[in-house]
């Protein structure tokens, strides 16, 4: 304390402050460095490298001379029927899983937010899928859908090979997608519900608003930022889903569940077309960012 009290007049202060700032800067860099090395080496670097690869004919083999091919991969992609089929499946998958996840999670969150008995059971169950490794979720549902030893055929009295059926495979994995992603969405929506000020509901009740009116006019507008955040995240996560579907169907039957991620993975690591697969990845990144940007922009405009 005495040191600060006896410190001489202001003139010297700016200099020492500057010296302090530069020391602080050095310290900051030193602290950031260990985290920056792996991120630059294994994440930022590959990202830029990958964008570059998209414009080459790189092959995922040891002996291959890579050369720049401009937009060749892009034109090939546009005329690739498998690509369009895969993107269509990806669109159906990610939109329907996101919407169903949201509706199911909103319902569950509303129930959990009420004073119901046994809700603690539901609350624990609602988190369990979150805690499971995606591979185990995939294997578990494979057991449910299994044509011989599975329970679903037993329950419904059917004899269907769910995951190998051309028209049923996609709906079947969508159900698994909803089951898997519901917990996060429920937990986030529940947290949002609990942050809605109680006074608003009391005021609504005084004004004679019924349950539905209160839901439409109080709950939904109040939840809006949370809903926008979690549905955007869900959409991106679903669009980028890989492990779950890989375990369930490997993209089969006949490519009916081949999400864009699986398509690009096969191109890169089965057919070894690293350049083309990078172009597919780039296209996916642009589509995700565009959809996300559009959605967030519209939501923000409406919020105003």
């Amino acid at each position: 304390m005495t040191a600060t009290a006896t410190r001489p007049a202001p003139p010297r202060a700016p200099r020492s402050k500057r010296r302090g700032a530069s020391r602080q800067k050095r310290e900051m860099w030193l602290l950031m460095l260990p985290a920056m090395v792996p991120v630059l080496l294994f994440s930022v670097g590959p990202l830029l490298y990958g964008i570059g690869l998209a414009f080459t004919d790189a092959r995922n083999t040891r002996v291959h001379e890579t050369s720049f091919v401009g937009l060749e991969n892009f034109t090939r992609m546009l005329s690739d029927e498998q690509f369009w089929a895969s993107f269509q499946i990806g669109a159906i998958w990610s939109v329907s899983v996101t919407v169903l996840q949201f509706l199911a999670a909103l319902g569950l969150a509303l129930l959990l937010n009420m004073n119901l008995r046994f809700r603690s059971v539901a609350r624990v169950l609602a988190v369990v899928p979150w805690a499971m490794p995606p591979v185990v979720i995939g294997l578990m549902w494979k057991l449910v859908y299994h044509p011989d030893a599975g329970i679903l055929n037993g329950l419904l009295g059917t004899d269907v090979n769910w995951l190998a059926d051309f028209s049923l495979a996609l709906p079947a994995i969508i159900v698994v997608g909803v089951w898997t992603g519901m917990p996060q969405t429920t937990v986030v929506l529940l947290a949002g519900l609990q942050n809605v000020p109680k006074e608003l509901y009391e005021a609504g009740e005084v004004d004679g608003a019924g349950r539905w009116r209160r839901f439409w006019n109080i709950t939904l507008p109040q939840l809006r930022p949370v809903i926008v955040a979690i549905t955007s995240l869900d959409f991106v996560w679903n669009f980028n889903q890989f492990g779950l579907v890989y375990v369930l169907t490997q993209g089969g039957p006949g490519g009916r569940t081949r999400l864009p991620m699986l398509f690009a993975y096969e191109e890169a690591f089965r057919y070894r077309a690293a350049g083309y697969a990078s172009m597919l990845g780039l296209a996916m990144a642009i589509v995700v960012l565009a959809v996300l940007g559009l959605y967030l922009w519209r939501q923000m405009r409406e919020a105003k």
Binding site: W29, Y49, M261, A268, A277, L280
Partner: peptide, 29 residues
């Protein structure tokens, strides 16, 4: 500082990025 703001931006972006675009070059590296 700027570095820290960039770091926070990266944290958010990394939640969104399609891994396939990274995983191919990463494999080559």
């Amino acid at each position: 500082s700027l570095v820290n703001r960039i770091a926070i931006g990266w944290v958010l972006v990394s939640q969104v990025f399609p891994f396939i675009l990274i995983i191919i070059p990463l494999f080559l590296i």
